[in-house]
Computed example of a mutant assay.
Amino acid sequence: MAPAIAPMKPSNVVENSFVKALAESSTLNYVPSQFAFANDSRGSHSDSIPIVDFAHLVSGTPDQRTKVLRNLDKACREWGFFVLVNHGIPDTLLKAIIEASLEYFELPEEDKRRYEAKSASDPIKSGSGSVINTANHRVHLWRDFVKSYVHPQFHCPDKPHKLREVLAEFSEKTRSVARKLLQDIGENLGLEKGYMDEVLKLDSCFQLYAANYYPPCPQPDQAIGLPAHTDHGLLTFLIHNGVAGLQIQHNGEWFNTNSPQNSILVNTADHLEILSNGRYKSVRHRAVVNNEATRISVVMANGAAPDAIVEPAGPLVEQDGRAYYHPMKFIEYVETMLSNRLQGKSNLDCIKIQQHD
């Protein structure tokens, strides 16, 4: 039998809109009813999650590069996910962005409330978030977050002061790595050199920074950090503070992600599935919580330029005989997705072209 869920008045959730403050309450022994999300958070372990050695893509021998290109293609086709190693981003920078993000969550609540989202297009957003479950009930998530658009225009919370400098450098470094990966992905897809840069307008590519704070939860099987979802964009980069919690779905089974220190977890996102005309899949993933340690994750979502129209690549449509997805302006897709709170709904499903269309 599932543990009892302690009742909690809705007004208390509003007054304590950040989960961090709630989790630090010395009297919290149960998950409040507004957070009730029964789930089986168990995940399998796999030694088969692909590893991509970025150094061999950039400066390896021809044989090494060919091998890594095959690994990258297999990762995008079969897993929609890979572990990126030897990416060249300094370990000190990875540590600094985690620390600066943690400092944000430790700010007084009034500083964080300045960025409570009023619309999906707000360039900086902060809060905890909620979803509508299959029973049409609103469920609060067991996490706090801050998000900001960092490219082509840079936005950042005013505090903590060191976040701005660290985030600007992290954005620049990850943008360079993502662009190189996308060029190699284009090569794997048989597209002409420069095709990805041109059609996606990568000089003005969209980047979204997101930091998530998942405090210890008294009943991890009765709450969720983030339910199963896919990401907008082309490639999502994720690093964390060493506390596990990200799970990916592969062949209908959930897998825990284990990554070497200072590696980057990368998943292929919705717009890469669209551009590849379905060859590469946007993978469902979720964040589960635990009752022992706080988990911090930092995400950089890398996408096309805001005004780029993303659609299946022409040469691939020619091969397949038809396009499987409707075209859509990138930023419209992003803002539609950010404003969508329906559990289990996918923007991808909305723009897939059915046979009878």
Rank of each mutant, 00 (worst) to 15 (best):
R295L: 10
R295S: 05
I296R: 04
I296M: 13
S297Q: 03
S297V: 01
V298C: 07
V299I: 14
V299Q: 12
V299F: 12
M300L: 15
A301I: 12
N302D: 07
G303V: 05
G303M: 09
A304D: 01
A304S: 10
A305E: 05
A305C: 11
D307Q: 14
D307Y: 05
D307L: 11
A308Y: 07
I309K: 13
I309Q: 09
I309T: 11
I309Y: 11
V310G: 02
V310D: 00
E311G: 07
E311R: 15
P312L: 11
G314Y: 10
G314K: 14
G314W: 08
P315V: 08
P315R: 04
L316V: 08
V317W: 02
V317E: 02
V317M: 04
V317T: 06
Q319C: 12
D320N: 14
D320V: 15
R322K: 14
R322C: 07
R322V: 08
R322G: 02
A323K: 13
Y324S: 14
Y324M: 15
H326C: 13
H326V: 10
M328Q: 14
M328T: 12
K329L: 05
K329G: 02
F330C: 09
F330Y: 15
I331M: 09
E332K: 13
V334L: 04
V334Y: 01
E335A: 00
E335S: 01
T336E: 03
M337D: 10
M337C: 12
L338S: 07
L338R: 08
S339A: 11
S339D: 08
S339I: 06
N340S: 03
R341H: 13
G344T: 11
G344Q: 09
G344L: 07
N347T: 14
N347V: 13
D349Q: 07
D349I: 00
C350L: 13
C350T: 14
I351G: 01
I351H: 06
K352D: 01
K352L: 00
K352R: 15
